[in-house]
């Protein structure tokens, strides 16, 4: 494997966004890119990351290799990379370590780290291609704000999506709160758009603890996409350049 990123920033932010949800995971490398799928310890949420080969310049991976990595250790190593550094990830065929090289843009500093790998026997879940009943895209910062505000009211949020908009409702001991985002196209700045597409109305409840955790990915993308169908996990997607993505799946709370 040899994968070179123009800016370490992307990889630093991806790892930062998932390290509190999952501790040890395999980065599955093959000729299509670097993928990761892992459940949190309580098996309520799932993270799925894809960094496509096109994300890297260049990308080379001759055979499939899983790189079992302790994300806490990886975070320590990535602290040594400045956001603008060129990052190269390298590994041999049957690796004991993954090699990370950080180069300053002006090429007068090269840092090189070897991170020990672990054998991780990871369960892999099959996520079927799903036609979601409702898809809502919104500014990632707005979603983060809504989740953190409602977490102060309750540990759960009900998300209701209709043609009129998407509503987040929390009911707590101190009272209730709700936030509605209506469909909205900002001609000046499409990052501010709220776009809803719906085949049938959806109403589901989710844990805000998990949702606020997913929002650690906010810096990766201007927009976040929520995909919902009744009685299936919510998908929260941060789309990245070159068809790469960071997706979180969260099982709903179900009625008594």
């Amino acid at each position: 494997l040899e994968a070179r990123l123009e800016a370490a920033d992307l990889f630093k932010k991806v790892v930062e966004a998932i390290k509190d949800l999952v501790q040890h995971c395999n980065f599955d490398c093959n000729d299509s890119g670097i993928a990761l799928q892992a459940m949190d310890n309580s098996h309520v949420a799932l993270v799925s990351m894809m960094l496509t080969a096109d994300t890297f310049t260049p990308f080379r991976c001759d055979r499939n290799i899983p790189l079992g990595i302790d994300l806490t250790s990886l975070t320590k190593v990535l602290r040594a990379a400045q956001s603008s550094d060129i990052l190269t990830i390298k590994s041999e065929d049957a690796p004991d370590v993954v090699n990370l090289v950080f180069e300053g843009k002006d090429q007068d500093r090269i840092s090189e780290y070897d991170l020990k790998l672990m054998d991780i026997d990871q369960e892999h879940l099959g996520i079927p291609d799903t036609e979601y009943a409702a898809t809502a895209s919104m500014p990632a910062a707005d979603f983060k704000r809504i989740c953190s505000d409602l977490l102060l009211i309750s540990e759960a949020v009900s998300i209701e999506c209709t043609k009129e908009g998407i509503t987040f409702k929390a009911e707590g001991d101190i009272g209730n709160g709700s936030v509605t985002l209506r469909q909205h196209s900002d001609l000046e700045n499409s990052d501010k758009n709220v776009d809803i597409s719906l085949t049938e109305p959806v109403a589901l409840s989710f844990s805000l603890k998990y949702l606020t955790g997913f929002c650690k990915a906010t810096g990766l993308s201007n927009q976040v996409r929520l995909c919902l169908s009744n009685d299936v996990p919510l998908m929260v997607e941060y789309a990245l350049a070159n068809n790469s993505y960071l997706r979180f799946y969260l099982a709903p709370k179900i009625g008594d």
Binding site: H43, G126, E155, S205, V232, L250, A251, G255
Partner: peptide, 14 residues
């Protein structure tokens, strides 16, 4: 707030 479902209730191990 209801009972928290598990992700493996929806997606099978592959």
């Amino acid at each position: 707030g209801g009972r928290q479902a598990g992700i493996t209730n929806f997606y099978a191990r592959s």
